[in-house]
Write a protein that binds this DNA or RNA. Sequence first.
DNA 1: CGAGACGTTGACACCGGTTTCCAATTCGGG
DNA 2: CCCGAATTGGAAACCGGTGTCAACGTCTCG
Lengths: 351, 351
Amino acid sequence: MGTVSAGEEAISSKSDGQKPTINDVARLSGVSKKTVSRVINKSPLLNQATREKVEAVIADLGYVPNPQARALALRRNFLIGLIHDNPNAQMVLGVQEGILDTIRKTEFALVVRPVDRHSPTMFDDIRHFIEQQRLYGVMLLPPISENDELARMCRDLGCTVVRMGSARLDDDAHLVASNDRQAVSEAVAWLAELGHRRIGFVAGPEGFRSARERELGFADGMTRAGLATEPELAARGDYRFESGLAAGAQLLSVDRPPTAIFCSNDEMAAGVLHAARARQIDVPDDLSIVGFDDTATAAHIWPPLTTVRWPIAAMAQAAASKLIDPANAASQPSFFLSDLVRRASTVPPRE
Amino acid sequence: MGTVSAGEEAISSKSDGQKPTINDVARLSGVSKKTVSRVINKSPLLNQATREKVEAVIADLGYVPNPQARALALRRNFLIGLIHDNPNAQMVLGVQEGILDTIRKTEFALVVRPVDRHSPTMFDDIRHFIEQQRLYGVMLLPPISENDELARMCRDLGCTVVRMGSARLDDDAHLVASNDRQAVSEAVAWLAELGHRRIGFVAGPEGFRSARERELGFADGMTRAGLATEPELAARGDYRFESGLAAGAQLLSVDRPPTAIFCSNDEMAAGVLHAARARQIDVPDDLSIVGFDDTATAAHIWPPLTTVRWPIAAMAQAAASKLIDPANAASQPSFFLSDLVRRASTVPPRE
DNA sequence: CGAGACGTTGACACCGGTTTCCAATTCGGG
DNA sequence: CCCGAATTGGAAACCGGTGTCAACGTCTCG
C-alpha cells in the first residue's frame, strides 16, 4: 500500500490468475486479516461501517475462503461421509439429495463411499476413508447401519455418526428410523380389510434388522386381524429378485395357496409376480401382492405394486441436521412414519 | 509429559487424544519433518535405513497425513466432484462406484452434487460448489454434460472437466462416451433379423444429445435393414414412464400398428408395455419391445426387456483416470461399446 | 479532567504439511 | 591425506485461514 497511484490501483484486483486470499481482501480494504476473518465469520463485535467496507471488497474480488485452510486452523473440517452398501439405488440417491438439501446453504460437502459388506477389508477400508479424509461425521445407511461395531469404530475415530435404520439402533441424537414394523402391520390390515384370509409372507434375509422388523410387523398385523400365521405360508428371501422368484414358487405350490402375499421388499415382490405369472396365476385377480420400499420398479411393473413408501428425503434431511449440528441433534425427529401406497396389485380375493 | 519414565516415554505415542502429526513422527524417529515428508512422498533420494525407520514409526503411530494441510501447502486439493441431474439412479450409482474403484488407492475423494437442470440458479450453484470446495476436477453426467457453457465455466474456475455422454462432446482427454447411435442401429438390426418389418420408434426429448443419437441410430438401422421409416410409427417422449404410456397409446392406435417398438429408454419401454397391456395386445407375441439402459426395471418387468446396456463402470473408471491424471488422460479409452441384452420381450412377429 | 469501561482493531503465533536454501556428512579420486 | 562432488538432514518461510491478547480510541462517570 506504499504506492500512491490514486484510488484505481487500490481497488483493482490482483489479476495474477490466482484466487484472492484473505490477505488480498485485507490489503485492499485497508484492514487486518483478523478483521476480514471476523467479517467472514459474522463476528458480532465489529463496526458496521468496517463490515460493509470489507464486504464490498469481498464481493468485488469474488473472494471465497479456502476451506482447506479453514479446516486446518479450526482443527475440524466440513466433510461428511455417506457410507453405504445398498442394493437400492433410488434410496441411496434419495438420501444423497436429502442430505444435500440440508447442507446446501452451509459449507459442508458430502463425500460418498460405497462399500462391500462382504469384503473382509471393509472395516479397514472405512477406517482408512475416515482417517484419510478427516471426516467430520458419517452417515450410515442400512444394512450396514445395523452394525454396532462399525458405528463404534467410526466414533472412536472421532466422527459423529448418524445411523439410518428401521428400528431403534441408537439414541435419538444419532438415529433416524422408519417404523417398518408398524407400516407392515398396516399393510397387512389393508389386505385383511380387502377380505384376504390366507396371507403369505416373504421375509428378508436373516440378520437384517429391517427384515426382522418387517417380520414382527407381519405377525402384529395378522394377530390384530385375528388371522393365524401358518408356517407353510412363510418363505424367506435375500431381498433380491431371484429369491422372490423362488419364494413365490414355494408359496404358490402348497395345497391351499395364499390369496395375497406380503413381500419384505419390492424386488422380491417382482419375483413373486413372475412366479405367479409362470404358473398362470393372475395378479391381482388370483393373487394380491404387496411390496416394500416403493422403488421405481414397483410403479412400472404390471400390475403396479401396492407397496410401503418411507419418507427418505425427510429422513435424510433430519439425519444431516443431526450430523452437522450435534447440539440440536436430539431436537430433530428420529422416527418417521411410512405410507402405504395403494396400487392395482391388491384387490379383494376372488368370489 | 514432565514425568521421567525412562526410554518408554520417547517411544510411546502421544496418547493425548489428538491425531499424530508429522512432527510427532519426526520427533519419535529422530529425524526432521522434511525427512518424514520425503518418506511420505516417496522421494528417491533417501537413505533406505532412514526410510524404514520412519516407516516403522508411522505404522506404529498409525499416522495419516492431514489432507487439508497438504492441500494448503501444495496449493491443490484432492477432491473431485460428481455433478449430475439424472433421473436414472442406477446409472448415477454405477458411476459413483466406478469412480471409487479408480480412486480407492489414491488420496482423492469423491464429493457429489445433484443439481436441478431447470433451476435458474443452477450455474451459480455449481460455481459456488466448485469455488467453495476448491475442487480439483469435476465429472459431468448426461444430460447436463451436454451443456458446453457449463463445461466452459467449470474450466474457467480452474477445474479439469471430464464429460460423460453419448457422442463426441469434447476432445478425447475430457470425454468418455458410449456409442448410442451404433448400439441402437444394432438393436434395430436384431428386430429386423427376427423378421419385423413395421418397427415403431419412441424418441427421447428434443434437445438431449442422447435422444438425438438414438434417433440417428434408429434411422441407420432401418436404412441398413432396407426398411422405410414411416412418420406414423414414430412418437416422442421425455424419457419418463408416463410419456412412454402416451407414446405407446399413440403408436398402437394407428391402422396398421407396428409389430415391434424401439424405445429410447427403459422407463418409456415400460410405459409402452403398459399401453399394450391396456389394449389387450400381448407382449411379446403381438408386440416386441426394446428398451435402452438396462435398468433394474428392465429385468424385473414382465416380460423381461430386451435392452441396450452400456458399460457404466468401465466408463466411469476411465473418466476418473482422466480426471486424476490429466497427463495420461488421452491414453485412456474414450469410446465404449454397448451390448444388446436379449430377453423375452423380443420374439419373431406373429404371422 | 482523569480514570475506568467498553467496543473495535491489529500483531503475532499457530494449525500440519511442503519447499527453499544451506550446512553437514559421506564418499571417491588424485 | 586432502579436496570437491554427491548425498542427506535441518532451519525457516510459506500456504490461508483462526485464536489469543494487547492496544487503541471513545464514552461515561466520579
